[in-house]
Amino acid sequence: MKIAFSPCPNDTFVFHAWVHGLIPNAPKLDVTYADIDITNSLAVSENGPDILKISYGALPWVLKDYALLPCGGALGRGCGPLILTKEGTKQDPSSLSGRRVAVPSERSTAYLLFRLWAADHVPGGVGEIVVMPFDKIMPAVRDGEIDAGLVIHEARFTYPSFQLESLVDLGNWWEEDTHLPIPLGAIIAHRSLDLEAIAGWIRESVRYAWDNPNASQSYVLDHAQEMSSEVANSHIDLYVNEFTADLGDEGYQAVRSLLSRAAKEGLVPNIDIDL
Score class of each variant (00 low, 15 high):
G251I: 02
I83C: 02
W210Q: 13
T109E: 08
D169M: 06
L22N: 11
A148K: 08
T244Q: 13
D30C: 06
T244E: 08
A74T: 14
G80M: 09
V131E: 10
Y111C: 09
A119C: 04
D194H: 05
A148R: 10
S108W: 04
L221D: 03
P60E: 14
D50C: 06
L167S: 08
R203A: 08
A17L: 10
F15T: 01
T109N: 10
D120T: 06
T178D: 08
L170M: 09
P24C: 12
D147N: 14
D222H: 06
V62H: 09
W173P: 02
I187L: 11
S45K: 15
L184Y: 05
F157Y: 13
K64Q: 13
P181F: 03
I202K: 07
L84P: 00
W173F: 02
R115Y: 00
I187D: 02
S166P: 02
N10R: 12
A199F: 01
S161M: 14
A197R: 12
A74C: 13
S216M: 06
L112M: 07
L170G: 12
G171W: 03
E242Q: 11
L29C: 04
R100D: 12
D135R: 09
E242W: 00
E165Q: 15
L259E: 08
N47G: 15
H190S: 10
L247W: 00
A155G: 07
H190F: 01
I38Q: 15
N40I: 06
E230W: 04
A245R: 13
R115W: 00
S260Y: 01
D65T: 15
V168I: 15
K136W: 08
V168P: 09
A118Q: 12
Y208Q: 09
D211Y: 02
G144A: 12
E176F: 01
T39G: 05
Y252C: 06
G80I: 02
R261N: 10
L221M: 14
G251A: 12
T109I: 11
F157D: 06
S228F: 03
L96T: 10
